[in-house]
Every structure is written in C-alpha cells, then in structure tokens.
Design a protein around this nucleic acid. Structure first.
Lengths: 142, 142
DNA sequence: GTGAAATCGGAACGAATCAGTCCGATTTAC
DNA sequence: GTAAATCGGACTGATTCGTTCCGATTTCAC
C-alpha cells in the first residue's frame, strides 16, 4: 500500500517542471539541482514520464523538457500509472497465476476496488500538488 | 501501488471466516483447506489479524477463530492496515529520512492524498466482498 | 565542418523487503 | 494428570526494487 520511491520522485519532478512551464524547456540536471534529487534518478524518472506521454523532450544542445499537457490536465493517477503501470491492488486482473485460481470468491470484486482507488487519485490534478505550503495548510483545515 | 500477497490472503481469509460467522469458531487449518491457501501462510495471516483486533482466537483443543466484529463493521481499510500498517503512500508522514527534507514542496499535500485513498477503502465493507459472483457482476454493470 | 551539450536506452550491482516454513509455548478437553 | 490441538514468534531463501553508470543519438553554436 505504499508508493515506490520512483513514483514519489516522479511527482516531485513533475511539480517542479510545472513551475517552469511558462519558461519553456528545462534540463534534467536543472530539475535535479532544484529538487535535491540525484541526477541519475531524475534521468530515469523523466525517461518513464516522456515515454508515457506526460512530458515532451527536445534533444541536443539547448534542449530540455516540458510538460506535454497543461498542469491542470495531468492527474496524480497519470503520474503513478506512468511509473508503476496500471493501478491494480492484486495481480489477479492481468494474470492467472493465482494460488487459488477459480475458487477465489474475492476475485470478481477487485475491479470495483481498483476503480475506486483510481478515481481517488484521478481527482487530484497536478496544479493542486504544486501549490504553496500555506495554501495546503488552509486546505487541510477545511 | 500494489497490495502485498499477505494482505491479499488476509482479505480472502476474512471473507471465508465471515461465512462461518454464524457457526461459531473455525480452525486455521479449516480455513486453509477451504480457501486453498497454504496452511502456514494462513497461520501467519490470522496471527496479524488477531493482534490487530479483527479476529478473536480461542486456544486449546476445540478452539478456533471467529470475527471480532460483525462483517458489516469491518472495512477493507481495516484489513489492509492490519497487515501492512498505516495506509500511507510515502514515508514522509512518519519519518524524516526523506532525501529532500524540507525543500520538498509536495510533502504538505500527501496527507490529503492518503486520506482520500483510505476513504475509498473504508467505504468497502467486508460484507460487500463476501457476496456471490452473480451479485458482483450486476454490481459492476450498475 | 567541427565541437560541445543534452537526452535516451539499456545493463549491472547492491540492498531491502517479502513470501514461505518451521518449531516452541500455551491452553483446553478427557 | 495426560494428551491433543491450537496460537505465537523466529529463521531462511528468493524475488523485486532502487540506484548508478555507460554508450548512442541528436541538435545548436562557432
């Protein structure tokens, strides 16, 4: 029930990239120094984010990265799925190598749980995560 | 974003125990043979469930297990937390050994995400998972 | 045309958590 | 008092994950 570290770093990286959205392209090294994350880790993260279509990359000198869509159109579910694959609590959905196969009475209920979970993450846009600390505090109290 | 196998087995075990709720106590070996799970694994699972207060155990000859509360009062979040600990996507909440410490702008937003996620799981009672397959199918279509 | 800069893809090492199994301690029934 | 059956905790092996590094490709600047 815990997010992988890579997915956590992906969220941080995307938030930082959202701040540079107006300023055009940003290099991966720049994002690393701003967030405090190791540079190789950021490289691996942005690699997954670009292949998932969440970021656009421009190669060569003067190149860099930028969000493929507006920050408001990117949800937390998109970032998590880009790094960790489909949101599914169990392996039942895509593979049949379960220990109890067909005798499992819980199996038909997992899709409902997965959808509920995904919906909770899809309701959180990137813009909400990129706010300042003060705004978040008032948000918690509400 | 995936549940551990032990948590998965815990859900299956609790569902099976819910069916024996009216019949008094059930042995761990009985639950193992009915679900098809390995007996030692079931032992490990029920150990965590009893220590969490979800099950009551009676030792000695003729002893067994039974649900501590009615199945309707046990949610999926309870079972997951009993096996995997508190529902938290990141380690930020309970420890400070984050790589980026205080410079992390996303940190204040995680409690909101965790609450949303926990709420989604808390809305699914054990009775809903113990239904038959037909009822679940109609539920999906709805 | 040449050099420098920056991203992309894959592979390899190390660590940590997890699944599975076993044996001992405790308690009840006869 | 004996015996049977249960729960509880500890140990070992394995799989996965996190992290790092290197070479290949592409573009701008001079």
């Amino acid at each position: 029930m815990r997010l992988s570290n890579l997915a956590d770093y992906a969220v941080v990286t995307m938030c930082q990239a959202a701040r540079h959205c107006g300023g055009g392209r940003v290099s991966a090294a720049e994002l690393a120094s701003e967030t405090g994350l190791p540079a190789p880790t950021v490289q691996k993260v942005v690699s997954k984010l670009t292949s998932a279509g969440l970021m656009r990359s421009v190669r060569g000198a003067g190149g860099g990265l930028q969000l493929a869509r507006p920050a408001a159109a990117i949800s937390l579910a998109d970032i998590v799925e880009a790094v960790e694959g489909p949101i599914a609590l169990t392996a039942c959905v895509d593979s049949e190598d379960c220990a109890i196969h067909d005798n499992c009475s819980v199996k038909p209920h997992w899709p409902i749980v997965n959808n509920a979970l995904r919906g909770a993450l899809a309701d959180i846009p990137l813009t909400r995560l990129a706010r300042t600390e003060d705004m978040a505090r008032t948000e918690e109290l509400a």
